[in-house]
Amino acid sequence: MAPDALAQVLRPLAEMFPAERYADLLVGLRPSDDAAVYRLGEDRALVATVDFITPVVDDPYQFGAVAAANSLSDVYAMGGQVVLALNVCCFPECLGAETIGEILRGGAEKVAEAGGVLVGGHTVEDQEPKYGLVALGFVHPARVLTKGGARPGDVLILTKRLGVGIITTAFKADQARPEHIAAAVDSMCRLNRGASERVQAAGAHACTDVTGFALLGHACELAEKSGVRLRFDARRIPWLAGAQEYAEQWLFPAGTARNRSAYAGQVRFAAGIAEETQQLLFTPETSGGLIAAIPPDRADGLVAAFRAAGEDVWVVGEVLSAGDLPRIEVGL
């Protein structure tokens, strides 16, 4: 669904549940975030989210793992730890028990890797398979990571390469090379757990994950909710191998145009940034990395912590003070 249409249908729901009536609701529909957060006590809050997707790869086990990592990511984007998960399944009647078993095994193993426990689920019949999780986690109420706290001077970091959206689109059109698909699947299967812990430990002021609205869409939300502007350095943005090749062939999914039309008015590209690169930055991602605003004096330590853990992180930009639109600048 297009971001602006989604905001429109959610507006009456936010009015039905005004935040002032729910003292323990720390994050709900307004301002919306990656997951809801509800205070259970002085030192514990519940993180709740649901997400399910259509297949992005052919292998059922991999699809289950990608879908689960994608669902759990919303807990990590809030700074939480996963506790419980429930399967959300839509399967066609013709899909064999063995295939379904593999999807569920892929998902369950991700829940286990996250340190959570799978406790149930629900299945309905549908023509196109869909799978994902309801994910519940815990977070300390004082350590919730929202989109709303970025401050001018903060450093913007990104924890996964971009490009899975165009690679999986090329794959569906039989245009992608196996090694490109394999790297994209690895990236999508990787949990944002460690990244979330390190980002939180570095005192991040704001955090979100990069999924369907693409880097620039999610960046627009973070900038809007924080009341700041963001500047990205296009040369520092990391791409998966193959992404630029498929962009050169113009194999963009329909979501690219949707995101571009929703967010382009808030983004200014420096002269010299290729149109393919602009399109890529509007291309939806699945199970993408975290983007976080880190206090500048903590950025070096954060990068060192990622290196020590053998995980990737890139400094991709900075937070600027509020001003006129555009909210986002992409420079060279």
Binding site: T169, A173, Q175, Q249, W250, L251, F252, P253, A254, A257
Partner: peptide, 12 residues
């Protein structure tokens, strides 16, 4: 047809 099928057919 939806993206990227028209592009793929055109390129071909």
């Amino acid at each position: 047809l939806s993206c990227p099928q028209p592009v793929i057919l055109t390129r071909k």
